[in-house]
């Protein structure tokens, strides 16, 4: 039981000590890593297990970010984060009941459409009621507070993923992924389980959105609801191997590093490389990095 949590604890402690040792640059890079660790891990927990590929992470992230923009001035920081998680979770629970009867490509494009719908609705709503599309964040918590918040969320995401995998809830999710109808005839309340998993993943993304929002000083829908956030989450999880826990974590770290070096200097080349990597991984590594070391383990035995 402890064995699965041990690497998480070690990595967590190492990351926790980092602010004392690393430069601000390293810290900001680690922050990006942690954000994608949290997003990809929570995504895999639901979508990886069930096969319900969601491109909607951007919606949850953006809702969390907007909760931060609305409440940062008058609520304590932890409440802001919980608020972000809560709104994203509420949105996922509400929409989940309407969309989780669709499978496969239908579900995938629907989540994408839903995320875009939320972005446009937010743009319109803010323009109508606040008069401007974006919001300025003036009093933001220190970098260190943000760092530890995101670290806590990332550790929580991984711990949740491990705990879920060992639980009946996780077994139910895996059963839905293997054969949903069969799972249902064996007594799994599939509808409720799916909504719960979708909601749990959304809560993590919402919390991350709320925490990361302060990294932008100016919050606007195009930035925080950027569909690329949803896409990148899916890509990282897929390339890491959505069926595992370690895979997406490793892929998230690799991605953040590659992105850091390529994205600013060669933005187009970065995106082309990303596309190529995706295609190659689907063709030659369909179970992700996790599949690679599982295969290696089998050969060694």
């Amino acid at each position: 039981m402890m064995r699965a949590y041990a690497p998480v604890a070690v990595a967590g402690v190492a990351a926790a000590l980092l602010p004392g040792l690393g430069s601000p640059y390293v810290l900001s890079l680690t922050l990006t890593c942690l954000m994608y660790v949290a997003l990809a891990t929570s995504w895999s927990m639901f979508s990886g297990a069930t096969g319900y590929i969601s491109f909607g992470t951007a919606a949850f992230f953006g809702l969390g970010a907007y909760v931060c923009a609305w409440t940062l001035d008058w609520l304590p920081w932890p409440v802001v984060i919980l608020g972000g998680a809560a709104l994203a979770a509420a949105f996922a629970a509400g929409t989940g009941g309407m969309i989780l009867h669709l499978r496969g490509t239908y579900f995938a494009v629907l989540t994408f459409g839903l995320a875009e719908l939320v972005r446009h609705a937010m743009t319109y709503g803010e323009k109508q009621y606040a008069g401007t599309v974006g919001r300025m964040l003036t009093e933001v918590p220190s970098d260190l507070v943000v760092y530890y918040t995101v670290l806590a969320l990332a550790v929580a995401a991984v711990a949740i993923a491990v705990a879920v995998r060992r639980s009946r809830f996780g077994l139910a999710l895996a059963g839905i992924g293997a054969d949903e109808q069969r799972a249902e005839t064996l007594g799994v309340p599939t509808r409720r389980i799916k909504i719960a998993g979708f909601t749990l993943a959304a809560a993590v993304a919402g919390g991350i959105g709320a925490a990361m929002a302060v990294r932008w000083t100016y919050i606007e829908p195009l930035a925080v609801f950027n569909p690329f956030i949803g896409l990148q989450t899916v890509l990282i999880a897929m390339i890491g191997g959505a069926g595992s826990i370690a895979g997406p974590v490793v892929a998230a770290i690799l991605f953040s590093l590659i992105a850091e070096y390529l994205r600013l200097q060669f933005p187009y080349a970065y995106m082309i490389a990303l596309g190529l990597l995706l295609i190659l991984s689907m063709l030659y590594l369909p179970n992700g990095l996790a599949g690679l070391w599982r295969r290696a383990g089998r050969v060694n035995r």
């Binding site: 005839t185 007594g187 309340p189």
Partner: peptide, 11 residues
């Protein structure tokens, strides 16, 4: 739903 049937003892 089918899960209700399963829990009611129908397999």
């Amino acid at each position: 739903r089918p899960d209700h049937f399963a829990r009611a003892g129908i397999a």
